[in-house]
Simulated scan of single mutants.
Amino acid sequence: MKQNIFDASLKTIGLVHVNAESVDMINSDAYKAYIKIMYLPKGCKVKVDFNIYETEGPALFFISPNQVLTIENLCAESGHFIFYNRDFYCIQIHDEEVACDGLLFNNIHNMPMTAVPEHEAAFIDHLFFQIENEFTLKDSSQEEMLRTYLKQLLIKSTRLWKQQHLGGVLNDQNNDPDSFRRFTQLVDAHYKEKHTVADYADLMLIAPKTLTHRFKRMNLPQPNEVIKNRIILEAKRLLVHTAMSAKEIAYELGYDDPAYFSRLFFIKTGESPSGFKAKFLTQKSVKAADLYS
């Protein structure tokens, strides 16, 4: 499997073609610790955490290190897979440059996919061509050129995501789209110890009612639902990807009463934690058996 990679002074970025030769590696834990961007053509099926996405045209996927990625069906054509670490480019530290945290990554809809319209595909194709070409040039400016192309990709993708998911919000000058982006950033950072809207309103220096009203006006999921959904998503990950018990997970997520946490999990999913885990593992076993039968 061909892998283009830059690795110097703890800074790493790499590019892999998505095809039959690389899919097993991409689906393994080899790139789990990296931030990932995947560009796929029409006809692919991708699972991110517990949701499946099918590409109806060219699409970009933005995967955080804590998310589980599985390519379930390859496309007829190959795609591109970029992986990089925070030392190479940290979107939180450079938030003012690209403003993608809370949009492309860790967004309010838990939506990792951004469709690429036909009239934008040539620009995205060009960026990936330039990135791949840059790996062959071993000069002193290589690192900064790769970072520049990466930033262009993030900025363009952020604009596309906003158009697709926030069209109405952006058109109303009375709305404050940055407030929900800030909120989702805070939730992703503090969901284990802060569970109420008031907790996050305090961090944002506004009243809880003001925060709730802003989300309602922008026709977004209510803040309390965003908090609970993030907690439940992490609980699902821990249930199926670790050996932790439901009680241990409850404590890990900041709940002193495991019974209360189990009731919350049931309300949000319709299943008990143990039932969810058993169902997931059974489905995984059946799929594996079908694959090798």
Rank of each mutant, 00 (worst) to 15 (best):
P41S: 06
G168I: 04
T55Y: 05
E144Y: 10
E97D: 14
L69C: 04
L137D: 02
K268E: 15
F88Y: 02
M113K: 14
Y31L: 01
Y84P: 03
F123P: 00
C44W: 09
A76P: 01
H119Q: 13
A33S: 13
K209I: 03
L238M: 10
V197P: 07
E144K: 15
K279H: 14
C100F: 01
L40C: 05
V286F: 11
E56D: 15
D178V: 00
E225N: 08
D95Q: 12
D7T: 00
A207H: 14
N73M: 12
F62Y: 14
L146E: 04
N219A: 10
M25I: 08
N133V: 00
L205Y: 13
V240L: 05
I124W: 01
E132A: 09
E252C: 15
I108Y: 11
V240Q: 09
M111N: 14
N85W: 02
Y53R: 10
V18H: 13
V116A: 08
I108S: 03
E248V: 03
Q130N: 10
V226Q: 03
L233V: 04
I5R: 09
F62C: 07
F128T: 13
F280H: 13
T210G: 09
S293L: 11
P258I: 09
K45H: 10
S28Q: 02
Q130W: 00
K2H: 07
G57Q: 14
K47Q: 15
P112Y: 06
Q92S: 05
K236V: 06
N110S: 14
K279C: 07
D256T: 15
E118D: 10
I267D: 12
Q173K: 08
D257C: 04
E271Y: 06
A115F: 10
S157D: 01
Q152W: 03
L281A: 03
D188W: 06
V169Q: 07
H190E: 08
E72A: 13
L166Q: 08
T242M: 09
D172L: 06
I13W: 00
Y149N: 05
F266G: 02
E225F: 06
T212N: 06
